[in-house]
Structure formats: C-alpha cells, structure tokens
C-alpha cells in the first residue's frame, strides 16, 4: 500500500479547518468561564444557514454572511437562556443540540422537500481556494500549504486574532478575568453578564465560520448531521490546550490529521470502514485521558509533600 504523504498532509490541514474554528468558538466562552457544548449545534445550524443564504441571495459571500449570522444568533439564544434566564448551561446546550439536529432537517424539508441533503435542490456555491504566490511554486510545501480554501487561511488569521483580542484588548482582559474568577472581576466593577454575552457573540462568529466551511468548502451542500461531532472535538481540543489559541489550533491540526488518516486508510486498505471512522474520536478520548492523568499526578505529588 502506498500513501501520498503530501496529499495526506494537505488533507489534514483541510480537515483541521472546521476543528480550528470549533475550538476557537469553544475557547471564547471557556475564557469567560463557560463550557459551551452548544458549539456542535451552532455549527450545524450555521452550515444550513450558509447554503440557504447562498442559494436564495445568489452568491458565495451572502452565504458566508448568513452562515456567520446564524452562528451569532444561535449563540445569543444560548447566552440568553443561560445568562438572563439563569438556566443550567449543560442542559441548555444538550437541549439546543438536539433541537438543532431535528430543526435543521425540518427547515431543510420545508425549503427543499428533501430530508437528507440539499445537494439536488440548492445551487452549489464553493468558497474559492487560494493559490498563494511564491509559496505555490515551492515544491512539496506549495502543494501542502497553497491552494487551500480561503476559510483555511482565515482560520490561521483567526487564531492570531483571538490571541490578540485576549492579550491586547480591554475586553479580552475582562473576558479572561471573568473566566478565572468572576468574584474578583465583579469586585472591581466588571459586569459578568455583559462579558458573557460578548464571549457568546464571538463564539457564534467562529461557530458560523466552521459551519460555513463544512457546507461551502468541504462539500458544497448541507446534509443531515454533517457536523458529526466536530464541535465536541473542537471543545476537547481547546480544553487540552488549556484555552490557548495557538495550542488549540495545533491540537485541532492533530485531530485533523487523524481524520485524514482515517480517510486515506479507507481507500488504501481493507480495514473495516466503521473502525477507521472511529479513529478521530478514539484519539480524542486517549488524548483527554493522558492530559488529565498528567495534571492529576502533578497535584497529587504536591499534596504528598513533594516539590
């Protein structure tokens, strides 16, 4: 069996893109102290929002805008329930994700009469791939890094943007302070609720981009349950990276690689497909267990009187 390493790596980056956005989305609320499982459903809604917008408004960019808008609106729905309505965040997110799974199919059926995909009914729009001058002419590297979707490059910029926002702006500082110790933040006059809304808004932005990538770049249509756990993987990616934007992106890349590995092996070997499709999720569990054991051991050593 022969594997084209270059194609594999290029694919890994592509597969990592929605995960990076998902991780950044989860990271925004985590930095404000909220573990937002609703990212999964937000991405799903955005994926549908994007193709619908593109179809009815007749353009790629309208689609991107609608995707982002859907992400933001769904984020604010969860924020309203949790921050203003004081509901339990986990239960809200579970309910929201279930509603999103059924709701997207329902809306798709209303609009197209189809129940599994929009590919026949909606016109396909694809976000352009970008060839980067100079880079594209470098052998190997050019094939890996150039020619990716525009959103992949936006994902890279977003990592930097989130880092800058958190480290260099007042709102970023306040988001971090609320996440770390809401009482301390409140004691110096920062509104925890307001910061919560802002973080959900930014979370919605990235969830929107993640969904848009899935339905307008990875494929060019919406299909039932197409997110398939990517929101949760993004959630654990940022968790393992301890909320660091760059770390989250790197872990996402690793998960992207496992997804790509599964796809490559599917075409190259006669391993059962079901087993191969399990790889990304299995890798997530193993990675979470390892990082958790590491931090528990460290704490235990201190309590036993070690260093």
């Amino acid at each position: 069996m022969s594997i084209d390493i270059v194609a594999f790596l290029a694919d890994a980056i592509k597969m990592a893109t929605p995960l990076v956005f998902a991780a950044l989305a989860a990271l925004m609320t985590r930095q404000a102290g909220m573990f937002n499982m609703g990212v999964e459903g937000m991405i799903l809604c955005s994926a549908l929002g994007a193709v619908t917008g593109a179809h009815y408004l007749g353009g790629v960019w309208a689609g991107v805008l609608c995707g982002i808008l859907t992400g933001v609106v769904t984020g604010l729905i969860i924020a309203f329930a949790h921050l203003t309505g004081k509901t339990d965040l986990y239960l809200t997110c579970i309910a929201f994700n279930l509603a999103a799974t059924g709701g997207t199919v329902f809306i798709m059926y209303l609009l197209t009469g189809e129940k599994s995909t929009t590919s026949g009914a909606f016109r396909s729009y694809q976000i352009p791939n970008i060839n980067i001058p100079i880079l594209k002419d470098i052998p190997v590297l050019g094939r890996i890094l150039s020619g990716q979707s525009l959103l992949t490059y936006i994902a890279v910029l977003s990592v930097w943007f989130v880092w800058f926002l958190l480290k260099r702006t007042r709102v970023g500082l306040r988001i971090r302070s609320v996440g770390e110790n809401p009482k301390a933040a409140e004691s110096v006059g920062i509104s925890v609720t307001k910061i919560g809304y802002i973080s959900f808004l930014l979370c919605g932005l990235f969830a929107g981009l993640s969904g848009t990538f899935l339905s307008m770049s990875w494929v060019t249509f919406f299909m039932k349950n197409m997110v398939n756990g990517r929101g949760y993987i993004g959630l654990s990616a940022q968790n393992m990276a301890n909320g660091s934007p760059i770390g989250s992106a790197l872990v996402s890349l690793l998960f992207g690689a496992t997804t790509s590995l599964a796809t490559t092996m599917k075409s190259q070997s006669n391993f059962p497909t079901e087993f191969l499709e399990m790889i990304p999720y299995l890798a997530t569990i193993i990675a979470i267990v390892i990082t958790s054991i590491y931090s528990i051991n460290k704490k235990r050593r201190i309590e036993r009187g070690g260093k």
Partner: peptide
C-alpha cells in the same frame, strides 16, 4: 485573595480601571 493567577501583576492591579 481575589486575584487572577494567570494574569500579570499590572493586569490584576489595573483591572476595572484599565489605561487605554
């Protein structure tokens, strides 16, 4: 203490009255 351990001293001290 009402502190934010992951932030710097200056960030902790000026939180809420941040210079811009």
């Amino acid at each position: 203490f009402m502190l934010l351990p992951s932030l710097s001293v200056a960030e902790n001290v000026t939180l809420g009255v941040e210079p811009m």
